Amino acid sequence: MEAVLAGFTDGAAQAAAAGRPIRIGTLLTAMRHAARSQEIAELAVRFRDVGVVGFDIAGAEAGFPPTRHLDAFEYLQRENFHFTIHAGEAFGLPSIWQAIQWCGADRLGHGVRIVDDITGDVLGRLAAYVRDKRIPLELCPSSNVQTGAAPSIAEHPIGLLRDLRFRATVNTDNRLMSGTSMSREMALLVEAFGYGWSELQWFTINAMKSAFIPFDERLAIINEIIKPAYAKLL
């Protein structure tokens, strides 16, 4: 962890010196099928003031519910620390419900299966709760297609979730496994849904609103970097 954070510090310094500053926040990830979530949660909190901004749990959903790691989540809540839970990709609504209502997730990794609780434009109780609470959905179009959570980019629920004003964000998931990048994911959405710069700005601002960094930093990045950059394109 010390080596990773030192590398990020060096890289950020080099970027700033080149006139292209970057802000890096690190998540530490535990795996659902392993029994080290408490240890990793404690490690995340230990490094919270030097670059680690949150905790994540990933891996197979079916057979490995997030409630198995409840001790880690309760510890993180007592420490006032942010965490996200991969839920609602390979498994459905029960996984999302447990992640939010039992474990207290700040964000949902994927969460794409929340559409199972939507009929047309009518939201079920869980979907309405997720939307009304502005719980961010870390949607990963290419990865969701590859895992079978969505039949294609054009049929990905991100279109519906955006129309219904969920806190939808665009992500890559595993860039190596999916052979993708943020630019590619955005381009795929442009091609599939006809999005323009205003829609991409909406996704980008959603992401920054949901970042695990202090509010004043999020606001500054939105108002001083994101909006001015998109204004030039718009």
Rank of each mutant, 00 (worst) to 15 (best):
F47T: 00
Q146E: 06
A207F: 04
V130H: 05
A220M: 10
S143G: 04
G109C: 07
G59E: 14
E89G: 07
I158G: 09
R167M: 15
A15E: 12
R68K: 08
D49T: 02
A207G: 11
L233P: 01
E74Q: 11
C103T: 07
T9W: 08
W102K: 14
G148T: 10
I158Q: 12
L219Q: 12
I226F: 06
A62R: 07
E61Q: 01
W202K: 03
Y195P: 13
S152R: 05
G88A: 10
N206C: 08
A60W: 01
G111Y: 00
A154W: 04
N206G: 03
R165W: 03
G120P: 09
A150E: 04
R23I: 04
T29D: 02
G109M: 11
V145A: 04
R46M: 02
M186V: 03
L28F: 14
F8I: 12
T29W: 01
D10A: 14
L233D: 06
M208T: 13
I57C: 00
I213P: 10
N223P: 00
D71M: 05
T172N: 10
L161V: 02
N80A: 11
L70K: 14
I118C: 00
Q101D: 15
A229P: 00
A17K: 13
A231Y: 02
L5T: 10
R23T: 10
E89I: 02
I24E: 01
L93I: 12
R165K: 14
R107E: 12
L28G: 09
A128E: 11
I40L: 13
S37N: 02
S142D: 06
V145T: 05
R113S: 08
D117M: 09
L160C: 02
L234G: 13
A211E: 12
H82C: 09
G19W: 03
G194H: 08
L5C: 10
A13H: 12
A187D: 13
K232S: 07
G51T: 14
V130I: 12
R78F: 01
V4R: 04
Y230T: 06
L164D: 02
Y230I: 03
D49R: 01
E224N: 08
K133R: 13
A12W: 05
A58K: 04
R134S: 05
Q14Y: 07
M177R: 13
F73I: 06
G104Y: 11
L219C: 02
L76C: 06
D56L: 01
R78M: 06
A13V: 09
L233Y: 10
T172G: 03
V52C: 07
K209S: 10
R218I: 04
